[in-house]
Design a protein around this nucleic acid. Structure first.
Length: 545
RNA sequence: GCGCCUGUAGCUCAGUUGGAUAGAGCAACUGCCUUCUAAGCAGUGGGUCAGGGGUUCGAAUCCCUUCAGGCGCGCCA
């Protein structure tokens, strides 16, 4: 629809001797028309003519006027187009016939993109902030996949370094204590019920095998046991949240394969690494960072940054055309140094797009829920899923821009779980489903909707819905380009908001067979679009509610 | 102190990357189940788009500035 109009206007402009102008097309307020362009206004400056006069000339030069009912100039120089019914019907038929092919603009053209998200430390269960990252990352990945990209969803596992070691130490201390020994708990150790459970599981498997050992002697086994259990827990949480990954990149593997060493010597050869005060530094200030960063500490240990250099080196040197990292906004200060690494390796800093997902502040009845990881007190994604529901939780995340600060009130969310907009949208799908079931009971061959002529659809509600359906590809395209899945969410709410009143007012299945078929066709089209949206957003599409 | 994000209806948030009279859900109030599912529908009220300047045909949107909130500025991760 959009492309067709752009093409028509482009041709008209060519006739007027104007080329190389981008034709902006937008959806106006309904009373003005179905689709509009402000192009005459933006040409006013260049042509030094009044915009309304330019608009007139454009309209005169447009071919194929028959797909429109009206073309009008309005306001300061908008051109508003209203489609003819014939055109709407034929497009509706195409939609039903082509299904998702009709809906999804193939913008990616097979380009390979990697989306890395969640990447939570395997030291405990996922919390709500991870949930937001998961919902957004999954939806964005699905969106890009639908938009013609080849998408790889990656989870980076921090299975080396201090945090998993600390996890192991925490479990080890608890294990010793379990055996009645007085053993110091690490200062920054992990606490909480899940550590107790983990310790019991560990004891269950190894009995008293390590009671006489110091931590270092058992380190590898305790650490591995613990983080693997935690990782399994995380995987289970994600699975129940209906979020899936294609690859799991291990940090430890980067060490073991020598990638960390290699990437440092690579940077060294490029003259971007130096020694000072016993430490090894990366000269990130050469690439716009505000200070240089330590890679290897004075005590010979790697910083967190070191494997990240290797990791992102692997990314940029990999097979991907585009790279997207989704991070919590609290890591935003980390962007310049990672992009410095990328530039130091000879790639443009924009090779990596970092999408920041803002903080989630958790409330209960308006009061902040204080979360202390240290004390092991935090509300997990699982608790919220259990309390509020997975679809509802996701929907709350997907009705907001990623960069908006989110207040998640458990009580409100729970209260809304009955009234949540997600059900409103899913209910539309369920209703359509039962309409079809009913139609079949009446002996109607509902499978024929694909060949039905929708010409009998004539009430205003029907035409409005058809027009709405036909704008989906535009909304979809905008969502893909801007990396904003939430646009789909809002669209679905609007579509459902048209369907429910229609349902209330008109019966689909009546004695009039032809009209019934036409209306079933409309329902089928709505269902196709709803399901497409659900699929992208990672929401379930219940057949009945 | 510096950097990033945010500020839109009582509350939670959209606003098609600069377009026309700023929208939705919740909350409040009034009605609607003998009908393909009432998780629904019809209706009412609700705004100094944080404040102030600027850019232009046109600003919630872009620039400057003030205020308010969040986050970040380690040889932590």
């Amino acid at each position: 629809m959009k492309k067709r109009l752009q093409h028509l206007i482009q041709c008209a402009l060519k006739q007027l001797g104007i080329t190389s102008v981008e034709v902006v097309v937008e959806l106006p307020e309904e009373s003005f028309g179905d689709i509009a362009t402000p192009v005459a206004m933006s040409l006013a400056k260049i042509l030094k003519k009044p915009p309304r006069k330019i608009a007139e000339d454009i309209i005169k030069a447009i071919d194929e006027k028959d797909i429109f009912d009206r073309i009008e100039i309005a306001g300061p120089g908008f051109i508003n187009f209203t489609f003819s019914r014939t055109y709407l019907y034929s497009e509706l038929k195409n939609l039903i016939k082509e299904d998702s092919l009709f809906l999804r603009e193939k913008i990616g053209k097979g380009k390979r993109v990697q989306v890395e998200f969640v990447s939570a430390n395997p030291t405990g269960p996922l919390h709500l902030g991870h949930g937001r990252g998961a919902a957004v990352g999954a939806a964005l990945s699905n969106l890009l996949g639908a938009g013609g990209y080849k998408v790889e969803r990656e989870f980076y596992i921090n299975d080396a370094g201090r945090q998993v070691r600390l996890l192991g130490m925490s479990v080890f201390a608890k294990y010793k204590q379990l055996h009645g020994m007085d053993y110091p708990f690490p200062d920054d150790g992990y606490r909480g019920d899940y550590i107790e459970n983990l310790t019991r599981e560990f004891e269950n498997q190894y009995k008293d095998r390590f009671v006489k050992n110091e931590f270092d002697e058992a380190a590898r086994i305790v650490i591995d046991f613990s983080y693997k259990k935690m990782l399994a827990l995380i995987k289970k949480d994600l699975e129940d949240f209906h979020v899936y990954f294609d690859t799991w990149q291990s940090e430890r593997e980067l060490y073991e394969k020598g990638e960390v060493l290699k990437s440092i010597s690579d940077l060294r050869e490029r003259g971007c690494v130096y020694e000072r005060e016993g430490a090894t530094w990366f000269k990130s200030t050469d690439f716009g960072d505000d200070k240089d960063r330590v890679i290897i500490k004075g005590d010979g240990e790697y910083t967190y940054f070191a494997p990240d250099i290797a990791y992102h080196r692997k990314k940029v040197e990999g097979k991907f055309d585009e790279l997207i990292d989704i991070w919590g906004a609290d890591h935003h200060g980390y962007i310049p140094r990672i992009q410095a690494v990328i530039q130091a390796l000879g790639y443009p800093g924009e090779s990596l797009k970092v999408l920041l997902v803002q903080m989630v502040s958790l409330l209960r009845s308006g009061k902040p829920v204080l979360m202390s990881k240290r004390a092991g007190e935090f509300v997990t994604l699982r608790e919220v899923m259990d309390e509020v529901g997975a679809d509802t939780t996701k929907f709350i995340f997907l009705t907001r821009r990623p960069d908006s600060h989110l207040e998640f009130d458990l009580e409100v969310a729970k209260a809304q779980s009955a009234e949540n907009p997600v059900f409103y949208v899913q209910y539309a799908n369920a209703r359509i489903n039962s309409i079809f079931a009913h139609a079949r009971e009446q002996g109607i061959d509902a499978d024929k909707v694909k060949d039905t002529e929708p010409g009998l659809l004539s009430v205003p509600e029907e035409l409005r819905i058809i027009k709405k359906l036909l704008t989906y590809p535009m909304v979809f395209e905008g969502a893909v380009i801007s990396h904003e899945p939430h646009r789909i969410t809002f669209y679905l709410q609007e579509l459902a908001g048209m369907f429910h009143p229609y349902y209330q007012r008109y019966k689909v299945v009546t004695d009039d067979t032809d009209l019934t078929m036409a209306r079933l066709a409309l329902c089928e089209a709505i269902r196709i679009v709803l399901r497409d949206g659900f699929e992208i957003l990672g929401l379930s599409a219940p057949e009945r509610m």
